[in-house]
């Protein structure tokens, strides 16, 4: 499913040492996409300009919650190793144990973009994707 331009729906919840993010969306793919955008927004200011590249990402995990973490880990890896900021995605195929996506990234440029904080990792602490009515919600703690 292609991600549409929209305001990301997420909120920051109190956490003493790290940051706790709650994301919701109308679809499971939207949840993954919103979470990726929320993570980037916590790391970089003004990350919405710059050259783009598209990468194919294929992930597997033993369940949907673990797949969600693997997806966000991929976003962090591309940022820290290749200087690529998540800029949107088309999730072409998704099931509980795997996904395939075409992910668009922008190149981080210190002249254009301001780094806010380093997210070391996305933790598994109390991770659980919930569906209430027609909406999907997840809370996760990012170690900073």
């Amino acid at each position: 499913m292609k991600e549409e331009a929209r305001k990301i729906r997420y909120k920051l919840l109190p956490h003493t040492a790290d940051i706790c993010i709650e994301v919701s969306a109308a679809s499971i793919t939207g949840l993954f996409q919103n979470a990726a955008a929320a993570v980037l927004e916590q790391m970089v200011e003004s990350g919405k300009t710059g050259d783009t590249v598209v990468r194919q990402i294929s992930l597997q995990a033993s369940g949907r919650d673990l797949l969600f973490i693997a997806w966000l880990q991929e976003i962090l890896y591309e940022f820290y190793v290749h200087g690529l900021m998540y800029a949107g995605s088309t999730i072409e195929h998704m099931r509980a144990t795997g996904l395939k996506a075409a992910v668009m990234f922008r190149r981080f440029d210190p002249k254009q973009h301001t780094a806010k904080r380093e997210i070391k990792a996305i933790t598994y602490h109390n991770i659980h994707i919930r569906k209430t009515g027609s909406r999907y919600t997840v809370r996760f703690v990012a170690d900073i």
């Binding site: 995990a61 033993s62 673990l66 973490i69 990792a121 933790t123 598994y124 602490h125 109390n126 991770i127």
Partner: peptide, 24 residues
């Protein structure tokens, strides 16, 4: 390193139905 081993051990625990008080 931490991420890699959490992922490996987490997937194994999930497949083995190991009950954990916290996945971390």
């Amino acid at each position: 390193v931490c991420d890699d081993y959490l992922r490996t051990l987490g997937n194994r625990a999930s497949l083995d139905n190991v009950v954990l008080p916290d996945r971390q």
